[in-house]
């Protein structure tokens, strides 16, 4: 016991050092941006820029649309990925390789190319599919108030990150034994999934959910090129050429997203 306490104390200093350097590296640029938004050589200190944002037109509407898109994306991503990855861990290694490649591929396609591909596909609707039932589907997924086409795109964009998080979590627990134990106790697959596996994957599911939500709230290129106005697009639209406003708005969206994720993670924690 005594040996352990001395071992644990030494990393403490290194740990504080690492955290301190990281804090400096990550916070100083944000501080510089923040300083720009509140201070100007001519006008001095002023927080008025932030007041302008919250009263701007369309703030709540675009934020709620992004939140809705985010939640839907998270649900779809997890619903699709968990059964597949579980099945891989339970004994289909070849499937695992296929899944790994397929899930990491969307990462290397730059969003702008992805949009070019989506646009080409959407272009087929008026040209080729006009007389088939798919025409209305392709139009319906582009409804401006809740574009499902964006959910489809975001699920694809989030897949690599979700895969990596879930993979790390699944490797850390002994899936085979847990599943066998549950099955032997008479559990059906759904119970196995929800009562045995998921509670043990809390960290990685949380990581996957955070990454996905942050991705959806910050995603700009796909949404703007397809002509929709979620939160990130709204941010760029209202800031226009007002320098301080555009920087302030992006900082605010950072803080907002972070606060949101903290709330979600706090809610998740309370259940323990």
């Amino acid at each position: 016991m005594a040996a352990m306490t001395t071992e644990i104390r030494r990393p403490g200093l290194g740990r504080a050092g690492v955290l301190a350097i990281a804090a400096v590296y990550f916070l100083v640029p944000l501080a510089a941006s923040f300083w720009f938004t509140i201070h100007n050589d001519a006008t001095g200190f002023s927080f008025s820029t932030y007041g302008d944002i919250l009263t701007a037109d369309g703030f709540t509407q675009s934020l709620f649309m992004s939140l809705g898109l985010g939640v839907t994306t998270i649900v779809v991503v997890l619903a699709l990925m968990l059964p597949a990855m579980l099945a891989v861990r339970l004994g289909a290694p070849r499937l695992g390789q296929v899944l790994e490649v397929v899930c990491t591929l969307p990462l290397v396609v730059p969003p702008i190319t992805f949009v070019a591909g989506i646009s080409t596909v959407l272009r087929w609707a008026p040209d080729q599919l006009a007389s088939t039932p798919f025409w209305a589907t392709l139009i319906a997924i582009q409804k401006p108030s809740f574009p499902i086409v964006l959910v489809l795109a975001y699920v694809v964009l989030a897949t690599p990150f979700a895969y990596r998080s879930l993979d790390a979590g699944l490797r850390a627990i002994d899936v085979k034994t847990l599943v066998e134990a549950s099955r032997n106790l008479g559990a059906g697959w759904v119970t196995v999934m929800f009562r045995t596996i998921l509670p043990n994957l809390r960290t990685s599911i949380a990581s996957a959910a955070f990454l996905t939500m942050a991705l959806v709230l910050g995603e700009y290129t796909v949404a703007v090129l397809l002509g929709f106005r979620p939160f990130a697009v709204w941010i760029v639209t209202i800031s226009g050429a007002n320098a301080q406003l555009s920087v302030a708005v992006s900082l605010l969206s950072l803080i907002l997203t972070w606060a949101l994720l903290l709330v979600v993670s706090g809610v998740g924690r309370k259940r323990t």
Partner: peptide, 29 residues
Amino acid sequence: MFASRTRVAAFTTTAALACALLAACGSAP
């Protein structure tokens, strides 16, 4: 309790999506 709640939520979401998609079938006017 938590499991059945999530299950119900999952089923409702799928059903809603299915309905939406089915309603969105049809050729161009």
